[in-house]
Structure formats: C-alpha cells, structure tokens
Amino acid sequence: MTTVFFLIFALTAIGAAVAMIFQRNPVYSCLCLVLAFFALAGLYVLLGAPFIAAIQIIVYAGAIMVLFLFVIMLLNLSAEERERPKRPRFLPFAVAVGGLLLLELALVFRRAPLLGMPAGQSETSVEEIGLKLFTDYIYPFELSSVLILAAIIGAVMLAKRKI
C-alpha cells in the first residue's frame, strides 16, 4: 500500500518537474511546479512528517507560488513568450550536465552509510518540532526572523523606487 502511494507521489513529482522545465507558458510552468509540491507533500506524509507537509502546502504552494503567479499575471509574461525562438539552443548541453550531476549524486548516495537502515520512529508531532525549534535551534530561528524583516524591507524598497 505504502509502496503504491510512494510510486504515485514520486512519479507525479518527477513528471510535473519535467513538464515544468519544458513548458513554454510560464503559467503552465507555475501550475506544474505546484503539482510537484503537492506530490512532495505526499512524500513527506509517507516519511512521517505531516507538519512539514502542511507547511509545504501552506507556504510553498499557497503563498510563494501564488506570488509567482501574481507576478506572471501582473507583467503579462505569456504574451511575450510567443516571440521566442522555438528550439532552446542549450538543451543538449543541459542534458549532458544533468546526466553527469545525476551520476555524481548516485555515486555519493551509494556511499551513504545508512542505506540499509530501517526507518526510525513513526511520526513526528508538532510538539517535538516546537520543542527542538525553541531550544536547540533558537538562534537560527531568531536569525530567520531578522532575515524575513530584511526581505520585507528590501521588497518594499525595490517595488517603490523607480530604477
């Protein structure tokens, strides 16, 4: 049962990702990526991380990708896409680099010492994550809030001033 779900989610994620990079219309690319994020959220649930799965959907699919879609619509990018040349020039090069990278990653992962290990505890609760976040990881947590503040100010400045 789990295997079936894994295969569905994994194939959906990979298929949507491939479709995303080959779509010429940026809105379609965006929607494919949202689908990939959903499939990844499914994989996170299978891995016993329901909190991260929910965050993935709320933040990634629900906020970040909506922002992308908003910008694409605001700038009306799909009209411009039609004037482009049909064949991307770098495709063979890109596929070659991608194949090399995949090979390299496969070699690295083969050396991972815990490949044969069985899965650990079943499901992480929100309490565990909260406790860890506010004890061991309190400084990164506070730093990330500063980062977000900086991002907000940066975005406002960029959007306001005419360059």
Binding site: A17, I21, R89, L91, L101
Partner: peptide, 21 residues
C-alpha cells in the same frame, strides 16, 4: 527521487532563459 528532482532543476537552469522559470 531527491537526486532526480535536483537534477531536473539544474537542467532547467541551463537551458531556460526567462528569469521567472
């Protein structure tokens, strides 16, 4: 799956041209 997704991202960066993608 993770490696494949990462690689697809790299391939996309190499041959797409518009910044949004």
């Amino acid at each position: 799956v993770s490696a494949v997704l990462f690689t697809i991202g790299v391939v996309g960066i190499f041959f797409r041209r518009d910044l949004i993608t």
